[in-house]
């Protein structure tokens, strides 16, 4: 909602004003960095992509169309920068290649978790996430969370991030990414499955030391 209000009420000159708001820009930059890291898994490259995207957004602010929210627009620039960078850097897998075969991953995980009759496999039944024993407020937890996010296939990570971090609405994500609502929901489900599994294995399921 905030995003939409932002986009409706601001013209590009008002938006360029945002670039002088240090807190806003710093927060946006952090979000972009997290987003870029999920895609390129290389801090320096991610940093480069974010800087280029920021610069490009600033220079082309007049192209900012009010149909989309400012944040969405900046992130779509970032996404293109990331893809460009990945293509330039031959040592990295091109984003589209990275995304192939992830469905298989998702299916394999689902098969692993559930029996043929659709019941949870005995060992895979969700266990209680014991908050008091595994306080999530500490730095170590966020490192695990970070690692689990990075372990997601790039497409899962991106869609999950758009939904949960950028809080984008379904039509906006589908339009931007060219995916159907059904496929978005299935991908988000798979992303959550993986993330849940990873957190349970590496954090909540661990005996506290």
């Amino acid at each position: 909602m905030t995003n939409e209000t932002l986009s409706v009420e601001m013209d590009s000159s008002a938006v360029s004003h945002l670039f002088r708001d240090g807190t806003f820009i710093e927060e946006l930059r952090m979000q972009m960095l997290k987003f870029a890291r999920l895609q390129v898994r290389d801090s320096q490259l991610a940093e480069d992509a974010v800087q280029e995207a920021m610069l490009s957004a600033y220079q082309h602010i007049d192209r900012f169309a009010r149909q989309s929210a400012f944040k969405t627009w900046v992130f779509s620039i970032l996404k293109n920068k990331v893809i460009d960078l990945l293509r330039k850097e031959k040592r990295h897998v091109v984003a589209s290649q990275l995304e192939d075969g992830v469905d298989l991953n998702g299916d394999a995980l689902i098969e692993h978790l559930f029996e043929e009759n659709g019941h949870w496999q005995k060992d895979e039944r969700p266990k209680k996430w014991d908050q008091p024993d595994h306080g999530v407020e500490n730095e170590h937890f966020w490192r695990i969370f970070d690692a689990c996010l990075e372990a997601l296939p790039a497409k899962y990570g991106r869609l999950f991030m758009m939904r949960e971090f950028l809080e984008m609405e379904t039509p906006e994500i589908c339009h931007n990414e060219g995916v159907s609502v059904t496929s978005l929901n299935v991908t988000l489900y798979r992303a959550r499955l993986r993330l849940r599994e990873c957190l349970e294995d590496d954090w909540f399921g661990k005996e506290k030391s």
Binding site: F114, N117, G118, H119, V181, N185, Y189, L193
Partner: peptide
């Protein structure tokens, strides 16, 4: 079944 329920429990957050 659980497999269907799990997906529904995720989709509940999206639609």
């Amino acid at each position: 079944n659980c497999k269907q329920a799990a997906q529904m429990l995720s989709e509940k957050l999206d639609r």
